[in-house]
Design a protein around this nucleic acid. Structure first.
Length: 300
DNA sequence: CGGAGTGCCTGACGGC
DNA sequence: TGCCGTCAGGCACTCC
């Protein structure tokens, strides 16, 4: 499920492949996925791709933007008509378009020789939880999801120009967020209004790396534990980004390729696997309605 | 304020 | 083989 590293990986791919290309037309196959006026974006060129937590904003050169949240199973895949060597995962995507393709953006650009090239940006979504909103660029940050988004952990220099100081999760802010909160620490980590970009996979792994029991109340963490968890969050997100995200389910990058972080999970998804640190039994429980994995021996 | 429940949706999976 | 019930899960929303 796409979280900060996955969405950032998609962003980097889109930045490389669609910026400068013009939207020729938009085909909507499932109306409820998309809102706003398609006419506003037809003919405009992609200028910049921004990320806000797990959401993206595809900014155009006419002061309009396409805001997208892929939620659980959304895929944004760019495919050129000219380059026939497709890297699209046969297992996680298959043919394009397919029955889960709900919106198709047809793109056009001139190559270096002045020849016209055609390409497509497909939005696929099995569970149809995701959304696409066409709105003026100045309204993107007014979307509730964006305006209420908590500060984001830093994942290194590769990551875009978007982060302003008030949006970066510093240790000091993290301490402030945990202070006096009786919420369970894992539930808090995943609350987008408090911390932006962390979802179930990385919350599980960060708590494992920090050796903290996910059931603990946020306010019960000591200064040292808080610092350890803060560093662990950055560490697992960086690992996720390094491996191009996690494709344990339907996630693929902007070229339809799978990520590899699922091969490096620390504790997430360890249904029958022993703890990677002590060999003991990994417990599966529910917290905040979501599957939670932890080692009761290594996480206290 | 926290916590629990519901809805959205479909593929996977277990039971028979 | 296939039908049926259950479940996962990001986020919004309601209710207590």
């Amino acid at each position: 499920m796409p979280e900060l590293p996955e969405v950032e990986t998609i962003r980097l791919g889109l930045e490389e492949h669609i910026v400068g290309k013009k939207i020729v037309s938009v085909e909507v196959r499932l109306k409820k996925i998309i809102s706003g006026d398609i006419a506003k974006i037809t003919g405009a060129k992609f200028k910049k791709i921004r990320r806000f937590g797990k959401a993206l904003s595809l900014d155009l050169d006419n002061n309009y933007s396409i805001a997208i949240h892929v939620k659980m199973t959304g895929q944004l895949i760019w495919e050129s008509d000219e380059i026939k060597v497709s890297r699209v995962s046969k297992v996680l995507v298959g043919e394009l378009p397919n029955k889960f393709t709900h919106v198709i953006f047809k793109l056009k650009n001139q190559n270096l020789k002045g020849k016209t090239e055609n390409s497509f940006l497909f939005y696929n979504d099995i569970r149809q939880f995701g959304w696409i909103k066409i709105l003026s660029t100045s309204d993107v940050e007014k979307l509730p999801f964006v305006s209420e988004l908590g500060p984001e952990p830093s994942v290194g220099d590769r990551v875009r120009d978007r982060v302003r100081d008030r949006e970066t999760l510093t240790l000091k802010k993290f301490q402030q967020i945990l202070k006096n909160k009786s919420t369970k620490i894992k539930v808090l980590l995943m609350d987008q209004k408090r911390i932006g970009g962390v979802g179930n996979i990385y919350a599980n792994d960060a708590l494992f790396l920090a050796g903290i029991d996910p059931r603990r109340q946020a306010k019960s963490l000591s200064t040292n534990e808080t610092r350890r968890l803060y560093q662990s969050i950055e560490e697992v997100l960086k690992q996720g980004l390094k491996y191009g995200g996690s494709s344990e389910f339907t996630y693929v990058n902007a070229l339809g390729e799978t990520g590899e972080y699922q091969k490096h999970f620390l504790v997430y998804g360890f249904y029958k696997k022993p703890c990677s640190r002590c060999g003991g039994k990994v417990l599966t429980i529910k917290l905040g309605g979501r599957g939670t994995f932890f080692c009761p021996h290594c996480q206290n």
